[in-house]
Nucleic acid binder design. Structure first.
Lengths: 359, 359
DNA sequence: GTTAGCACTCATAACAATCAAGTGCTAAAA
DNA sequence: TTTTAGCACTTGATTGTTATGAGTGCTAAC
């Protein structure tokens, strides 16, 4: 446990290291700290901080840089979010000022905007609620043996995909099948729909149809797509801004990692409720930060991820996050992210608002 | 005009430089050429090649590397495509062995497969025909003021997008509008549809509907999307394989370039019919190569693009391309690309084949 | 507990020396 | 006329040396 003075020194090291990217020495600190002590005193304090594992040096006679543990302590106890300048606020609003046709368009754009604002990479996930229900399922023949299947949910998301039935099922049976799905399943949560799809639905179909071949696969496929999480990654190329030219291979792997939708949930740590059981300050609100070694992926050991969970009424929770180097201007970014997720929520509520005018 | 012997030397320089990435000297060449002359003789020949601008050196006493003009000459007169080993052939087939629901899925996957095979970046564009016609337009209400608009074309592509009408138009009028579109426009090429949309259609709509507000924008939007080219870029991260660590900024710009769909047509040089008016050898068939300074973009000055145009019956032409450094193993890649585009065409024909069973 | 002073460490830059690869040129050989 | 051996010369890369400077740890005095 660092003393108050040590904590101030740590905070200053974080700040300066962040600005300059260079290790911070005792003399530099002397000129910057809010109290005056000699460099020798600072050196003594720094020695203690180093014993505690909060700062470290590259070689015997270099200045200190924060260790991951140091960042952790800084984030949990010292950081104060900075107010966001009004022009940034305007910029967010201006970027969001478009007509969106689907929620995913808003969510996707939010990742783009956030990455442009920060010059880091942004990841976004739309609002999701466990009790999102099925509101309708349609199949429209398009001629040429093509059909399009459309599934709408209470969250306002619409999933559609083209299929080809290859004469496996008559159009009569198809209509019946769609009617059965709607009669039986509309209004039910997608999770329940999934269960019923494995249970009673197949029996119903075989009872009333001549052949249900292919239909179940089709419906299952659309359902799976409608229920799956869609992540959007914006500003991938910003990873090049701070990459060491030496480890391009690592960077390549990271690029490939971000393209795999399957790993993003674990990155964003979606399953964990309260990640920090100790006593972190509460200024961060719904924002949390994960640092290098806290990922279970060595590729990210030099990266940090600032995650904000946002909440959109009954439509559930979404996530928006900033991925960058361990050393980021956290106090500014967290302020920004707080504001940004508020704006995103506003935009989403606005969308849903129209949405419910009519229902 | 290089002599026969100089041409052989140039070809060998290209080959060795490609393998090693190092400038090639006269002694190295002496051991590799299909004829024996002394290194001094080779030096003389190289001096001539350099006068002709086909090779160059980094500094006074370094080996030679091919200049862009040298590559150009090599590609036009010397290159011989290499036969593709059967296991590569199998790999292509295995990767394509899936059920595809839409043409764009095949096209997209083709970029991914090609980039994996080559370890370069691949760009693909689906087959397009100028006389693709409109085969149907639907609007399906989804409740909650949402509708989905669906446009199908003779090329088998289906464009769908969700819209919200906000009470601007009654569902009666909407149905009528859709009927008018289908009556008037089905069977016409999309280009003609576009013209009519600017001409007589608005009048028809105002004649028969109470209000057509919003509908024209909506239809125009779907139409535009259906008619626009969709490029797919696969293996972006492969750009990191050969990037100089020094010019990460340039690389970042290139990444952003590849994300802009609007610049890809000019990259692929889609408008040009016969790019090389002089007398290139014909072994390349429908494949052409563009080198650095032949792009009108300085970002690409160190890159090369191997482009194959393919043809799918009446469904028009598509393009598949490999983007990599100026120095690539062209003879292998061109053989591969030839084979690959054949396989892609097969797969597409297979898709269209089913497609027309029914019509 | 704080501070001035000092010896010590280490990365970095600058500089010279050396080496290896490769060139151009000349004069002799074919 | 073409080819080749020989040689002087250029240049980048490597290595070793030295100087510099930022920064530390420690000690003794305040």
């Amino acid at each position: 446990m660092p003393t108050k003075r040590q904590a101030l020194i740590l905070a200053e090291i974080v700040r300066i290291y962040n600005e300059t990217g260079q290790p911070v020495g005792s003399k530099t600190l002397m000129g910057q700290l809010p109290f005056h002590v000699s460099s020798a005193t600072i050196r003594n304090e720094m020695a203690t901080l180093e014993e505690d594992g909060l700062i470290m040096k590259n070689h015997t006679s270099s200045g200190r840089i924060p260790s991951t543990a140091g960042y952790r302590y800084y984030l949990d106890h010292l950081l104060q979010p900075t107010a966001v300048p009004p022009q940034v606020f305007d910029k967010i609003a201006a970027n969001f000022d478009r007509d969106y046709h689907e929620i995913d368009e808003i969510v996707k754009q939010s990742a783009t905007i956030l990455s442009n604002l920060t010059n880091y990479t942004a990841i976004s996930l739309g609002p999701e609620s466990a009790d999102m229900t099925l509101t309708g399922f349609r199949i429209i023949p398009l001629g040429n043996d093509q059909i399009i299947a459309i599934l709408a949910t209470s969250a306002g998301t619409v999933e559609s995909r083209v299929y080809r039935l290859l004469h496996l099922i008559s159009s009569d049976d198809l209509e019946k099948a769609v009617r059965i799905i709607n009669d039986q399943l509309v209004g039910l949560p997608l999770t329940v729909v999934k269960q019923k799809l494995a249970g009673e639905i197949p029996q119903l179909l075989t009872k009333y149809l001549h052949s249900s071949a292919g239909f179940l696969d089709l419906f299952g496929d659309v359902l799976k797509r409608a229920a799956s999480q869609h992540f959007y990654v914006g500003g991938r190329s910003n990873l090049l801004n701070f990459a060491q030219p030496t480890d391009l291979d690592q960077l390549k792997s990271l690029y490939q990692l971000l393209d795999k939708e399957s790993v993003l949930p674990s990155l964003l740590d979606l399953n964990q409720i309260d990640p920090r059981p100790d006593d972190p300050q509460q200024v961060l609100g719904p924002i949390s930060v994960r640092l290098g070694d806290e990922f279970n992926n060595s590729l990210l050991s030099d990266y940090g991820l600032i995650t904000a969970k946002y909440h959109v009424g009954q439509h559930g929770d979404g996530v928006i996050a900033i991925l960058g180097p361990t050393s980021m201007p956290y106090s500014q970014l967290i302020g920004l992210l707080q504001l940004f997720s508020d704006e995103l929520v506003k935009k989403l509520v606005e969308y849903y608002g129209y949405f419910h005018d009519d229902s």
